[in-house]
Design a protein around this nucleic acid. Structure first.
Lengths: 217, 217
DNA sequence: TGCTCACCGAGCGGAACTCGATCATAGGAC
DNA sequence: GTCCTATGATCGAGTTCCGCTCGGTGAGCA
């Protein structure tokens, strides 16, 4: 498994993203258009105030079209989140190709930078912090830890870190920490409070380095 | 400012908790009953699916009664959250009295334990992770950092830590990290995945100790 | 016996969501 | 190239459900 493989590859099959897979060309445009609309509306009014009518109008579509693709309101939000995750991974993949990472820390740092950049440029990116809610039923979240597992496999292969459940757990913790601190950075300041961003890098680095050393490989 | 002061004292004035202050006795019972009902419903169906009708029915009250006390649906959730915060602070205060903390780490550890205990025993306690959402408007959240500021003042006074914005920032980061990791611990396992709880203590301790040393005072 | 507090629940407005009618497109027949 | 048609895609009026109001009724206090 290579770097680009890890972050770029598709193997992220949305559980229930759309009701009906688009067949004609215009519908794929519609689909992304709906998500674009949802993204800007989220930035404008927030998660809770968003209505399906707003999304439809913004996308130049009718209510019915929204429900053709998504079973309900929250499904739209979830789809938006999945797209954001995909774009994040894609961005990381690109950056890793440009500036080849020399060690595990470079990789993590690139990921943090990508996250910050997308937070700044991508409408509705704060949807990323829209994870656990939905206490509805005790359904296992297939995404939970998925990302950490893939990164772990990659780090083991690329940089020879000691793998296993230990590494996966720590990466999951690191992801959780990083996400929360960065979200805090952007909670008030739309450009992101630099102090928190710096602190995120420090914390993540120190936490992982504490177990695997700053210069492994 | 003393420990019990910090965590126990009232000085947490809810912005807009209730519409009408209860005058007769039965109404205070109603109020807490409504919140109890909201708490169990939150555990059952989640934040988004909760309806005012559910809360009313569960509390053995009518719709109108809910709205007598709370201006709208989210106000009920906010009130529930405020009560949870209050109970958390109260619990910490009690525990600090029982086992007098000898240093800053004892204090933090007690807080983490209290958080975990309440997560396990208190219905709807995961409402605690219901903080930032409400991206609606760029209204400054007065709560953001409030807790960290108070804890900082207390640590400076009790244990002689170097204070200032530096300490406040770090405590805010620590609170954010701790909350997210603990929430992750309980995301799937209702008893809390012990691995994440342990990791939360380690991370919080190492992070703060890295700047102030493990044995200050 | 009044007077205020507390409670109820039918009803209103608006948002989520459905469904049959209508339009657009791909792709085969010629 | 041009029809033609099956089916995908879109629309939006209508239904249902939910948040919230308000006038009427019961419960506690003086």
């Amino acid at each position: 498994m290579s770097l680009s493989d890890l972050f770029g590859g598709d193997p992220f099959v949305p559980a229930q993203q759309v009701r009906i897979e688009p067949i004609q060309q215009r519908s794929t445009a519609r689909l992304s258009g709906l998500l674009d609309a949802a993204a800007t509306v989220v930035d404008e009014v927030g998660f809770d105030r968003i209505t399906t009518a707003m999304v439809a109008e913004r996308a130049g579509a009718s209510i019915g079209t929204v429900y053709r693709y998504y079973p309900d309101r929250v499904a739209v939000l979830q789809a938006l989140r999945e797209r954001a995750v995909l774009r994040f991974r894609h961005r990381v993949s690109e950056q890793l190709k440009i500036s080849a990472a020399k060690n595990w820390w470079d990789t993590v740092d690139v990921a943090i930078t990508a996250f910050v950049d997308l937070y700044r440029s991508e409408p509705g990116f704060r949807i990323m912090h829209f994870s656990d809610r939905e206490g509805a039923s005790s359904v296992e979240d297939p995404e939970s830890g998925f990302f950490a597992r893939r990164v772990a496999a990659m780090l083991v292969e690329e940089f020879g870190l000691a793998g296993g459940d230990e590494l996966i757990l720590r990466l999951e913790v690191a992801v959780e920490m990083g996400d929360s601190i960065l979200s805090r950075a952007f909670r008030i300041d739309p450009q992101g409070d630099e102090r928190f961003i710096v602190e995120c890098r420090v914390v993540t680095h120190d936490y992982l380095a504490g177990y695997y050393g700053p210069n492994v490989r």
